[in-house]
Design a protein around this nucleic acid. Structure first.
Lengths: 254, 254
DNA sequence: AAATATAATTTGTCTGTACATCTTATCTTA
DNA sequence: TAAGATAAGATGTACAGACAAATTATATTT
């Protein structure tokens, strides 16, 4: 009748029961009692083994899902996918344009806009195929009239070239414009950051000596099929821009 | 006796009931029925209002916790902390040393180790107070015998200076050594990346021309009290190191 | 009036039951 | 034998009840 227990938390030692259970199961996965790739016991089996209710078992397993050790599918069962708990640090972004990290009142001015086929060097840096057809938009980002922050080359798919006109109208990031206009969603964004030196033709526009140090940031935006729909290459002269990453230890890791 | 319901999922339309409920409450938070800073109704009140069990309510609220809209404290209640669901992109790190992004077989060789008081310039770059007492460890990271990757200055608290001897013994990252030896945990890691140029005294050690471009990475490790227990400043000559960030759109955002 | 004890409130943990839904194995039939 | 229907098994959703633990409000005492 659902009221046979005497004390809810019979736990004598530390925290809640499901946490104890999660710890035990976690240890067992680590020591390969349940090797990666195999199936874990069913909920009912765990209930019997530990003499707890399904709630407690599920609560324990939920924690193991959160740190990426197991994977569950309705009807099927529970499979071990990783020996050691993943996701130790998480970077949270509150708004979508924290991705770019430029203050909201910077402005992008388009210098040129033309279709290109990737040469070997460009293909290398942006991570594409040589000869691939893209549309290249050269632009400069300004803090105000006379303060250029960075030179940015934006590469978009030829079928999206018409958005070049829209850039600079407001402060909306380019990939946001694409998302809205062409109904694609950035599921994954990859960023590469490395040091470089400014080439002559860009140097004068940025007001620095040719060959002076720059922070290069390459951003690749992928849709849900893994297809890259935008690549941007930004070159920041030394002293004008700092890229910050803030990582928090994920709380749901014990 | 706990068996009065006829159908478990009375949901006529779409998904599970708790998801519907979460959607409704989410909309209400967005439209400021429950403004940020105020308290949401109690579980029991929500149970009555929607004629559902506590399970369903808690399951709905769990989702709102996950996307950072609400915050709950036992005994107290539920407070709204954000109007719009946060965490749009999440960076997952599988292992703790993915933070450093050096392949596991690189080696750190200590050049010098001495106590210092921060001068104005150093205080600025590492984000500390001028005159503060730290222990500075100068080192170089090598891929192999003759291939230096970067110059790294590590700053640790004076009380942790003895670990300087341990560095380079194995491939364990410095902050991991501190965590083990002194029982502190890195709850937050902040990284700043920017462009710089290599100073003369370091340039010859790295085998590059003085003033050549570098990628500078400043890492700050904080414990649970927000106290910084390690700072490292790494300077990578151009072409030897790329820092990559991979962001995934968080799934639990509807 | 201030400090302390008590009660009420609210979320957290836990059990038991029941049915839904998806998956997989088994059996049946063409 | 292969395709399709059936049954069994596993996880998902949902209900109701009970006690635990933390917080807050109330009453009591000094």
């Amino acid at each position: 009748m659902g009221n046979s227990q005497i004390k809810a938390s019979g736990g004598n030692s530390s925290g809640p029961r499901y946490q104890e259970l999660a710890d035990i199961l976690q240890t067992e996965v680590e020591s390969e009692v349940y090797p990666v790739g195999t199936r874990m016991p069913t909920e009912l089996e765990l209930c019997n083994r530990f003499s707890v209710s399904r709630f407690t078992v599920r609560e324990a397993l939920r924690r193991m899902i959160d740190n990426g050790m197991i994977l569950r599918r309705q009807g099927s069962g529970t499979v071990v996918v990783s020996k050691n708990p993943t996701t130790m640090f998480v970077q949270k972004l509150n708004t979508i344009d924290e991705l770019l990290q430029y203050s909201h009142d910077t402005q992008l001015k388009v210098k040129s806009s033309s279709p290109i086929e990737l040469d070997a060097e460009t293909a290398q840096t942006i991570g594409g195929e040589t000869g691939e057809a893209w549309h290249k938009i050269e632009s400069i980002r300004y803090l105000d009239e006379k303060s250029p922050i960075c030179w940015t080359d934006v590469f978009v798919r030829p079928e999206h070239r018409q958005l070049a006109d829209r850039i600079g109208e407001d402060t909306t990031p380019v990939f946001m414009v694409i998302q809205k206009e062409f109904n694609v969603v950035a599921e994954e964004v990859t960023m590469d950051l490395f040091a470089g030196s400014m080439k002559e033709e860009k140097a004068w526009a940025m007001g620095v000596e040719p060959g002076s140090p720059t922070l290069v940031i390459v951003r690749r935006y992928k849709d849900k099929n893994g297809r890259i729909f935008e690549i941007s290459v930004s070159e920041h002269p030394a002293g004008r821009f700092t890229f910050s990453v803030d990582l928090l230890r994920s709380s749901n890791v014990d």
